[in-house]
């Protein structure tokens, strides 16, 4: 240690060279790219990015645009419903599958396969199933219930729920798998202790097991929320944002502004808002998860 220590810079030289792609990605793309977008969201960029400062103009315009407001509303409605339902469905399915059932593998495989499919495929299948002319609506009517109406993709008021059905179908398998892993991770002796104590199964789930699964819930929450904010392909494929603008979402607004409407500034401002939404979830989570003890992880 004492004498002729090789220069710090050249220790682990190969490792440093190997890490260059990671360093470049982290610094230039993730940090640099994000900073660049935030900075340019305060400019009057149109077809091309220009450093002409306009202060908060882009944001003011953004928040006075009907389409953006509708996008945010949709994201809220879709997001909250998705969040609640995907957790309830995912957990209940996991709990059912955890009952030492037969055909467990088959059932699990069937519930999870939609997750392997792309959002485009998902959107198109459900567009077809929800097609009022041929799909569910026409079938129920053909059974004799002539006034039955279920055409979410053609009814602006409920169109977003048509997307929700598809999103749930695609994503609940993932939550189920994570919850199942969480349930299987619970010490079996706790279940035994609760049985000796005479606690009914539902109470054991609510008061003992679910609180013990907090880490799994939080990780799943972060995963689901970041997925919800990114929602784009599903909308493009299933509804194209329609009817009218009834299923527009922020990610689509960003794309359309940047690459179709030649209004980069709006795109930058909108994407910065999306970043803010994610940050509101991820940063508190990171504090909870890694802030307390530096040692873990």
């Amino acid at each position: 240690m004492a004498d002729a220590r090789p220069s710090q810079l050249f220790r682990n030289k190969s490792a440093k060279i190997a890490a260059i792609p990671m360093i470049v990605t982290a610094l230039f793309v993730f940090v640099g790219g994000t900073a660049w977008t935030i900075v340019y969201s305060f400019t009057k960029s149109g077809l091309l990015p220009r450093l002409k400062w306009v202060g908060l103009d882009q944001y003011e315009r953004l928040w006075s645009t009907k389409r953006w407001i509708v996008s945010i509303e949709n994201l809220m409605i879709y997001g909250l419903s998705m969040l609640v339902l995907v957790f309830v469905i995912g957990f209940i399915l996991a709990a059912l599958i955890d009952q030492k059932i037969r055909f467990e593998n088959t059932i699990r495989t069937v519930i999870l396969y939609p997750y392997a499919l792309s959002f485009v495929v998902t959107g198109l299948v459900w567009q077809w199933i929800l097609n009022p002319e041929f799909g569910i609506e026409s079938i129920v009517r053909s059974w004799g219930w002539e006034s039955f109406a279920f055409d979410p993709l053609y009814n602006a008021d409920i169109a977003i729920f048509g997307v929700l059905i598809a999103g749930l179908w695609q994503g609940s398998g993932l939550v189920m798998v994570l919850m199942l892993a969480g349930l299987r991770g619970i010490d079996q002796e706790v279940w035994k202790a609760a049985r000796v104590d005479g606690i009914p199964a539902w109470k054991t789930y609510i008061f003992i097991v679910i609180p013990m699964m907090r880490p799994v819930f939080i990780t799943t929450l972060v995963l689901v929320v970041t997925g919800i904010v990114k929602i784009y392909d599903l909308i493009v494929a299933q509804t194209g944002g329609g009817p009218g603008i009834s299923t527009e979402v922020p990610a689509k607004y960003v794309y359309d502004m940047m690459f179709q409407a030649n209004n980069l500034g709006q795109g930058f401002a909108a994407s910065t808002m999306m970043l803010l939404t994610v940050a509101l979830v991820v940063i508190p989570w990171a504090f909870l998860e890694f802030g307390g003890s530096k040692k873990r992880g």
Partner: peptide, 14 residues
């Protein structure tokens, strides 16, 4: 009966 387990099996949130 009352039972005591190797892993204690206490309810961690209470």
């Amino acid at each position: 009966i009352g039972m005591v387990f190797q892993s204690y099996a206490l309810y961690p949130q209470m």
